[in-house]
Nucleic acid binder design. Sequence first.
DNA 1: TTAATAATATGATAATTATCATATTATTTT
DNA 2: AAAATAATATGATAATTATCATATTATTAA
Lengths: 228, 228
Amino acid sequence: MGKCEQCIVREFSSLKALNKDELIKLAECKTSHTIKKGNPIFEEGDIVNGVYCITTGTCKLSKLSANGKDQIIKLVKAGELLGQRSMISDEPANLSAVALEDMEVCFIPKSEVLSMFDNNNQFSMNMMKTICGDLKDADEHMISISQKTVKERLAETLVYLQETFGKNEDGSLHIQLSREELAGMIGTATESCIRLLSDFNKIGLIGLIGKKIIIKDIAKLKRIADIV
Amino acid sequence: MGKCEQCIVREFSSLKALNKDELIKLAECKTSHTIKKGNPIFEEGDIVNGVYCITTGTCKLSKLSANGKDQIIKLVKAGELLGQRSMISDEPANLSAVALEDMEVCFIPKSEVLSMFDNNNQFSMNMMKTICGDLKDADEHMISISQKTVKERLAETLVYLQETFGKNEDGSLHIQLSREELAGMIGTATESCIRLLSDFNKIGLIGLIGKKIIIKDIAKLKRIADIV
DNA sequence: TTAATAATATGATAATTATCATATTATTTT
DNA sequence: AAAATAATATGATAATTATCATATTATTAA
């Protein structure tokens, strides 16, 4: 059982408000889990009786729609918490969380989170701020889907992926998404996504080496995305 | 200065957790305001140093995009609170709130809300749940925009408007939105929205009397919207 | 390694939606 | 009430995007 005190990722989430005693208590009740790439942490409809703290790896939060398309709502990375919304709302999960790479997560039971809410106002406030941030992001994502073209959204998403998850030594995007997943993020058909990537490749904005994507002209991508 | 104790709308928001003493204290620090139809309660970029409790009327939360289109994120009605997100995030408002009809609102200063957070856990929890609900709605709205056609979204929105805001004696939707605003809600061009309303009218799903919209076949609208 | 399967790519086409033009009808102002 | 303005309506067309078909290339399983 790892010590939460020595875990650096907690500094990046609401958990940073916890004091030494709270961290010791947390270390005793949390459970650690390994999730292999492609496997779910939880799925739509599951009762999520606590929150997951991501130690390593990244996952997608997505929802499968009637027509079989998987819309990706958000990517969640190490340091962030997962499942707060369902836990707080006392509702089954609205979205599925699936690992995009091998992950390590710690599960913190609901009773523990609620007791931290009671005893640590800063923790509650942090959690509220996080959820408010998610809400703002969701609103902006909505406007983006509604008012930007697929091309603009693809450009925007490529920039986001590089700036949020970085790149490998060869310059390619570190986070590995299939074309289908990328399409699911920007809300379009897989073929449309592939076609536009091809276009971006032809005009030298990006490079495509197998499934890898290398951003070559981020300034121009930003201009296309209209990120001012 | 009205007494919050005797105000029924508080029962419909997070404020329902407040006890008698808290309500008396609230009545002393709140300020009441009248907002005429079409006027803003706050605008994008404003610092919202508290929350508004809506006593009467409905407003739209929207964001003006670069191309001049006003995307409506959400309608907020009597009994609900307004401005929590900005207040909690300590950020300027991300959206504008504009009255769709004459409104009465009470402004509760931030200091008061924070003190209620500190002293009343149920209030904090209610507020969290509300924001989580908003987040869920935003996610679902996003998926709807991304995966449904304009026709499906229009049907969905008409059903929502009737079920949420009711209808007048003549059967027309009680909430009065211009075609432009309706288009802004479903994320399409005004002309497209008008054209589809025309189509719905021709096949008898709705009636159009001037600007008024009368839902004639809600079951079929639901089927089109794919609300199961 | 070879076969089987899945992912990526591209062409052809259809469907959806936006845009521009222009009526028509309301609403407001003078 | 008449003129001016704004909102609603509809046609014509262009642009965007989805869908279906079919290669081509990777990846996995046998």
